[in-house]
Design a protein around this nucleic acid. Structure first.
Lengths: 383, 383
DNA sequence: GTGAAAGCGCTAACAT
DNA sequence: ATGTTAGCGCTTTCAC
């Protein structure tokens, strides 16, 4: 009883001549000629994926030859190669990347750790990064830390166990200990930080010049005639919080405006946190700000929503500027003035730096890229 | 010259007694006792990740014992197990999932194919699905088809080569050929469709009752007094397009309103497509609709933007209802009335069905879940 | 130009 | 309770 090496069926098999002294068979169903090896342990159950051994058996050659043919290895007979390629197609061969990774100690997987991917910013970066990775033959494993140090650590382990070749990271805002990042480097796995970078680790980084961006934003508010400008900042664990805060302060200083300490509120970046901060700022009886520069667009949008609810007209009594140029900024009325970040560029450049590190023998010289922000003026800040 | 089996260094090594007749060493740096095997091929370069063999050597036991200890296998000496666990921690052991997957023919990876993940809808589903997967010990590989059949097919190959244990799919709107989906089933890899399901494939599916949702939406418009209700529908390749269209028609019919054929426009779901459709509808000289039911929220929002530009007041002269309850619906002014889908539930249920299929021997009985939509009334449809 | 054999890190019979 | 062996699918010397 001879089974087809492809479909495993027995009913459609006929003999079809002798090749190299061996009986050749033909499966009518699969339209496939094949030869069984001497002790041919015949094919297993259905859901077996074709391997190079299947191809080798079908062609009565060795699996090394098949492997070589599949990879355009120099020394290979043209005819043999074509045979192998044909058979591979016929048997619907898909290389087992797991096996390949194991023997090459290279998974062709790249990990990305982000705090979340709900708010346009990270998805856009991921898309851009993934595009670059895919082109270079890499796969991407996306992990969300959900702004939690614990989850971020767990993510790092998952990526390590999956033997990723490199990692892109934007830190959670809870992270204060960086051992899990060092573990990567300890094992020679390059890491590139983006946006929420880690000062303490000497690796490549890509981010936007937050200081400059904030400065532009606040300067614009001042030039629009606002005098009492507040700031809703991000969590104090994030470097960008300080950079944006400093830009805000520098602009106030340059134009001789006071920056009373109470005009700065920090919030975690959740919706609730943003609403709380906005409420606090807009409920003030004395010294209510006439403008607010917000650490990012989602926060700015919540601020506008709160103002709307309190019947405080934007921009007449309240100027607002955000950061990032979220698509929402165009939708909301009035349009939200904001600092545009080259979001896709961040993702692309970060991935390119990472790929370069991966391809470099030994530790590559870290490269730090600071991208230029741009002021986009809409209705929320011009009266 | 003896090297530490952990750090590979030689300078911090001292002898430390004889154990089971063998010389024991101690590394001051790593605070680690260890014994070398007879022919001890000493440790390789730095970026070598610890394997069970390293642990076995360090403890002078066999790697099977290590494997067993690591997996709480029944028959294992308590003491041995603790030793192994300690050593694993000491050597910072991370199991190689690739090797594990290879031998078990089970990758613990699950693929997700979505058209995109920029617009809240898919990211939310992915998050929910990922959460369920992670809890069950599965990893998730996310692929975007970018609404392209070709890319979707490529995605399928990538997932196949990565030997995923199952796949969650929401089809691209270009997809008319389904062989790449069948390939999964042919290899015993279960598939669950969600949201954009494939009629032709007999597998589990999760979606929202689109017909019912549209019916609710249009009924609401009618009850609000709108008489000439148009519809911007989705691409004709998607089943949900027909379902939503039919719901729209059924509501018109039930309330005795005419549904002139020209009051239905289909668009791909891109921003540009939406704007074009909106322009067409709102530029009509005769018979301009007084309300529009849109296939989803992003389209509805573009419609409102166009109306804003044309100074057509919403909701007074134009009622608008969307579908999905995108966060933007709350932000835009007036608020967008919409049909809420239980987005997270879709992701969760789809993943649960998939995990069940994976754990079932043989092909599981397909389960189809239709979830209930809900009307959320905001300002855009009430005058 | 091709085959045989070793080995990537791990699990799972099969011995003992 | 532990060691020995084979093998997952693949690449890569090393022979011939």
């Amino acid at each position: 009883m001879v089974r087809c090496i492809h479909c495993g069926e027995v009913h459609a098999i006929t003999r079809s001549g002798i090749v190299r002294g061996k009986q050749r068979y033909y499966c009518k169903d699969c339209k496939l000629y094949f030869i069984l090896k001497e002790e041919a342990t015949v094919t297993p159950a259905r859901p077996h994926m074709t391997t190079i051994v299947d191809i080798a058996k079908a062609l009565c050659i060795s699996k090394s030859t098949v492997s070589r043919a599949l990879h355009e290895h120099s020394d290979i007979n043209e005819q043999t190669r074509n045979d192998v390629l044909d058979m591979a197609r016929k048997l619907d061969y898909q290389p087992n990347l797991l096996a390949q990774s194991l023997v090459k100690s290279k998974s062709n997987n790249i990990g990305i750790i982000v705090p979340e991917f709900l708010t346009y910013f990270f998805p856009t970066i991921i898309m851009a990064a993934q595009e670059v990775a895919t082109k270079a033959g890499y796969n991407v494993i996306i992990c969300q830390s959900q702004e939690s140090y614990k989850i971020e650590k767990a993510n790092a382990h998952v990526l390590l166990s999956n033997r990723v070749d490199g990692v892109l990271i934007s830190m959670s805002c809870q992270t204060k200990n960086f051992e899990h990042f060092r573990t990567f480097e300890k094992h020679g796995i390059p890491v590139v930080f983006f946006n929420r970078v880690c000062e303490e680790i000497d690796s490549s980084k890509v981010y936007v010049d937050d200081y400059k961006g904030s400065f532009l934003a606040v300067e614009h508010l001042i030039k629009s005639g606002y005098k009492n400008i507040a700031h809703i900042g991000g969590p104090l664990s994030l470097q960008l919080t300080y950079n944006r805060l400093n830009g805000y302060r520098a602009a106030l200083k340059k134009y001789g405006l006071p920056s009373g300490k109470d005009q700065v509120i920090h919030c975690d970046l959740s919706k609730k946190g943003a609403i709380n901060a906005a409420e606090t700022l807009l409920s003030k009886r004395r010294n209510r700000p006439d403008a607010v520069f917000c650490v990012n667009d989602p926060v700015a949008i919540q601020l506008i929503m709160v103002a709307r609810q309190k019947k405080i007209p934007v921009p007449r009594e309240l100027g607002v500027v955000g950061f990032s140029d979220d698509p929402m900024a165009e939708i909301i009325d009035p349009g939200l003035t904001t600092i545009q970040q080259p979001v896709s560029v961040i993702g692309r450049e970060a991935m390119e730096l990472l790929l370069r590190s991966i391809q470099t023998e030994g530790k590559a010289q870290p490269i730090v890229k600071s991208l230029k922000p741009k002021l986009v003026i809409r209705g929320s800040s011009v009266r």
